[in-house]
Design a protein around this nucleic acid. Structure first.
Lengths: 204, 204
DNA sequence: GTCTATACCCTGATAGAC
DNA sequence: GTCTATCAGGGTATAGAC
């Protein structure tokens, strides 16, 4: 039954396409108004369907949030991982390139800035998610930094764990100032200044 | 008319006391759930009055938010100012002391972390407030840093404006990681590591 | 200055048809 | 998989008495 098979595949593709549109719309509104401020009706409309239509794919607002976070986190983690493991170039230069890339996707930066801050509250649905995310990413970066220290690329007078926490904090903190005043604050060049401070052999 | 006068003063004192209780309660709930998540009913109950009782003092939720921000900003800016202008001790040590102090008031740190992140959205009622706040505070800190550079306390191979943005970003970013895992992340000692990087004459 | 009562809108979610 | 219709509950704010 070729018809049946094609019909099934078309259905599945439609489902995937709908989910994709919903995720995109949800990113937009979660980024603009946070989890609590975003309205399911707006997201549904932007995705081109009704509210119950949306709820068919994500049975609750929290499910939708987790869907967005898992989807985006998968992509972004992969990018970070690739950056950290980049061969041939200086580790801190690769990280600076990541910050440069972030300047081209303000919506995604705003999504994670707002949701991460909201999530520090223990009652936020993404609280555990962000704790796990930071733990995971810090672990990976610490490995890369330790290697770069042994290779003599990064100053070795500070533990790799410390440098990791500082670098993530710098990225997160610069994002807030940049999102508030993108014309005034150059996230990438400020981060580059920080990176230079951490390179081995720098003298004033 | 001594009675009338005393009665008037008592009224005014009661008003001040009510406003103070409301502000305290609002800090608690804005810190826990952000502006959009916090409920006027909860704040009113925690302040010991009804919802219309609260609205007598702050005619809308936005007015209440601005009341909280102006009140806390006044106190915190003063503390930062005093820190920046502290004589006799190293500028960066004074700043580290401020971070140490922040570790004793997690509620206030969470208030500003969540509200600052929420406010990057142009439609947030505190958007302009936080833009102005960062501009103001960066200006003051830049002055202090330039002086410390001339005094030979801070490395002078970076512009004071750059160092200012980096220091604020570091404070903000560390707060997120610390609020998520206060037992694991020591905000003050991580900030001290950053401060040491910026002291003049440091060698690896 | 504070209350009770209430208007009125919004919001996430469900029921059930197609 | 998507819709229309609808619900129950929560949300800010107002009216008017005390």
């Amino acid at each position: 039954m070729p018809e049946l098979k094609r019909s099934r595949r078309t259905q599945a593709e439609r489902t995937r396409a709908s989910r994709e549109k919903i995720i995109q719309a949800a990113i937009e509104f979660f980024a603009r108004q946070g989890f609590r401020g975003a309205k399911m009706a707006d997201i549904a409309r932007a995705a081109g369907l009704s509210e119950p239509g949306l709820l068919h794919h994500f049975p609750s607002k929290t499910h939708l949030l987790m869907g967005v976070l898992e989807e985006r986190d998968r992509i972004d983690s992969e990018r970070l991982r690739a950056t950290l493991q980049q061969e041939g170039s200086h580790f801190l230069d690769a990280l600076t390139k990541l910050v440069e890339h972030n300047e081209t996707v303000p919506g995604l930066v705003q999504l994670f800035t707002i949701l991460a801050a909201e999530s520090v509250s223990a009652e936020h649905p993404a609280h555990e998610f962000f704790i796990g995310r930071y733990q995971r990413e810090r672990e990976h970066m610490t490995e890369s930094i330790a290697q770069a220290q042994q290779a003599g690329e990064i100053r070795a007078d500070l533990p790799a764990e410390t440098l990791t926490a500082l670098l993530f904090a710098m990225m997160d903190g610069l994002q807030v100032q940049w999102l508030l005043e993108p014309e005034k604050i150059s996230m990438a060049s400020l981060f580059r200044a920080m990176a230079d401070l951490l390179k081995a052999g720098i003298r004033e």
